[in-house]
Design a protein around this nucleic acid. Structure first.
Lengths: 200, 200
DNA sequence: GTCTATACCCTGATAGAC
DNA sequence: GTCTATCAGGGTATAGAC
């Protein structure tokens, strides 16, 4: 009988990250102790320090992994197409990622102020380059007269803020499926960009 | 010489709340100690407990005060007018409040999970009645065929999420003034609601 | 109302046995 | 790699003097 089923197949290293991910998302970085993480993993406190030099690095690792994963996911999915289609690709990719990996996403939004100064700077760089992905689509569409927005930067912030909110209430058990929600938001984004509604 | 200038005129009670407001907003509830709050106020730790039974009540007081103040502000400002105008009143009132009282607003969004179960339930009730204010405007406008939205509830969440985001980057020193930002968001909200742009 | 002193528990992190 | 034991410090909250 192979012993590869469930989380028991995981070695301690990944289990530490998973436990921290779960607990930080639930209670917040500052409210979670290394002892709690150890208990969740099923080891004693001292053993954690074989896998992370300290608690701060654990937080940084989670946020860094999330952001590079998000960026890489988008950059590998986007195609060379017109801004109108590209922005819809972005919304779909962004929401799929956010709804599937809600814990990592939540931590990345909530725990920025608990990063050390140095770690914060690195994370901010990644975050801004993701923001820029959307903003440059909007600017390109604006130049091509496909979009009609008053302020591309504010519109980009507004769209990202709107999309971020979804993670705070979606739990997969509500009135709407993930795909229905994505369809609604795709429509809202086109409206914000001043794209006339297409009649079927 | 009257000794009523600056914050020195404040009695200790309000100073405790102000210190907690500032520190919770900066570092987060869980990361702030009662000793830090006492130092900010300029008293010793024990003195704080003349003004709050415990740290949890301090957090609850701040959030409760904020939400009742927000609700009361809106309900006293709104007029009996058409949905199209009413929703613009809501956006203006909401953004003015959020940009003026950014610390209390930030705490109310960030520290929900640090409330006790009982306190959380009370705060959630207040928060939902505020959300309902916007949702009912949208529903009314939809029935009157002034708005054209696919899903009033999602649209309401999307608008509140978009507006919430402003507080995370606005600091009064950027490229745009508060009134310019409000104007941009009023326009975005009308677009999301399917109101045709009015030509001047 | 504020102070000092203190009770009691938990914190992150380390050392050394196994 | 994990355990147990331990360190130094800080956490909330209280008691009693002034």
């Amino acid at each position: 009988m192979a012993r590869t089923s469930g989380s028991h197949a995981l070695k301690t290293g990944p289990k530490v990250r998973l436990a921290a991910l779960k607990l930080f998302a639930l209670y917040g970085y500052a409210a979670v102790s290394m002892r709690q993480i150890a208990a969740e993993v099923g080891v004693q406190v001292g053993a954690l320090y074989n896998y992370t030099p300290d608690k701060q690095s654990l937080l940084y690792d989670l946020m860094h992994t999330h952001l590079t994963d998000l960026l890489q996911t988008w950059r590998s999915q986007k195609t060379d197409t017109a801004p109108e289609e590209l922005v819809l690709q972005f919304v779909t990719c962004h929401l799929n990622y956010h709804l599937d990996k809600s814990e990592a996403v939540f931590i990345a939004y909530m725990e920025l102020r608990n990063l050390s100064e140095l770690n914060f700077a690195k994370i901010e760089t990644l975050r801004k380059s993701y923001e820029l992905e959307l903003e440059s689509i909007i600017t390109a569409g604006q130049r091509a007269c496909i979009f009609s927005v008053e302020d591309p930067k504010i519109t980009s912030f507004a769209i990202l803020g709107m999309l971020k909110e979804v993670g705070t209430w979606f739990d997969g058990e509500g009135r709407l499926t993930k795909d229905e929600i994505i369809a609604l938001y795709r429509d809202l984004v086109l409206r914000m960009l001043g794209v006339p509604a297409s009649k079927p």
